[in-house]
Amino acid sequence: MWKFIVRRLIITMPQIVVLSLFVFILASLMPGDALSGQIDPNISRDAIDEMRERLGMNDPWYIQYKDWVVGAVQGDFGDSFRFKMPVTDLIWGRIINTFWLSLVSVIFIYAIGLPLGIISGRYNDRLIDQVITGYTYLGFATPLFIFALVTLWVFGFHFGWFPTGGSVAPGLEPGSMEYILSKLHHLLLPGLSIALIGVVGTVQYLRSEIIDTKQKDFILLARAKGAPESRVYNRHIFRNSVLPIAAFFGYEITMLISGSVFVERIYSYPGMGNLFIESILLRDYSVVTALVLLFGLAAIIGALLSDIILSIVDPRIRIK
């Protein structure tokens, strides 16, 4: 297993290099540079050229790339053109907000997905399963941003049960109980919206996995041993069906982060996704570049996590 994990980690390296190259090229292609919007329009052309020379902007591309990578590793992505502050400082607060939203969504996804999938798989083709399967079809057919708009309007504006924007009510002392509760209150509606749509894949996958496992010979052997149905399901069917789901965890994270782009926008939630869209609209390129790099890294790490989890839970990979 350790060999597998180490080997898997090694594979991650070239992935990250390719990603960084891609982002670097993307950044170079964007109009403007570090001096855009920073300098007094009255400064002479020569002075600007000199500054460019000093900043290394006339160096060959690989030196620029090296400088950029060194900066990125140290957390230096330059300054935001709009907020006039370092990109790193700007993003950091947003990452934390997005992290909380993703965490709440994941919890909801598993809290809803596991029972629905298990019930649907165990009682397949009965009424309860048909209802659940019907829901998953609806979930697949409904775009997340429409669903989020509807929940926002119904529960946010119409009933007024949930706040319609922001991540916390203004004026509360950070760290206080009210502050935490207010944060949670702000997370519930967007988290649930993501989960209710995002869960349908998990439900369908778990359902078909259970139906598949039910037909296996070793289930027959478990019954022939005299195991009661509850044990057959808990010890043999569910365990064997849930493991592949566990491996989905990493991909789930990737999916959540990309999904957050719409949801954060709709709920005006100050996370990375929202920042991404704002920055694109305002052509705040240094922020966009940093975010693309982060989203890409999240996807790579998500896939890595999935593979590592699978290698731990499945003895066929673990023992080698």
Partner: peptide, 27 residues
């Protein structure tokens, strides 16, 4: 009923299956 047959299966009578590659729980 299942509760009664389960006391007999695996104890007083038991079964050997055809395909040993699939008859055991892989995990």
């Amino acid at each position: 009923p299942p509760s009664k047959i389960n006391k007999i299966r695996g104890k007083e009578m038991s079964m050997i299956f055809q395909d040993p590659l699939t008859a055991l729980n892989p995990l």
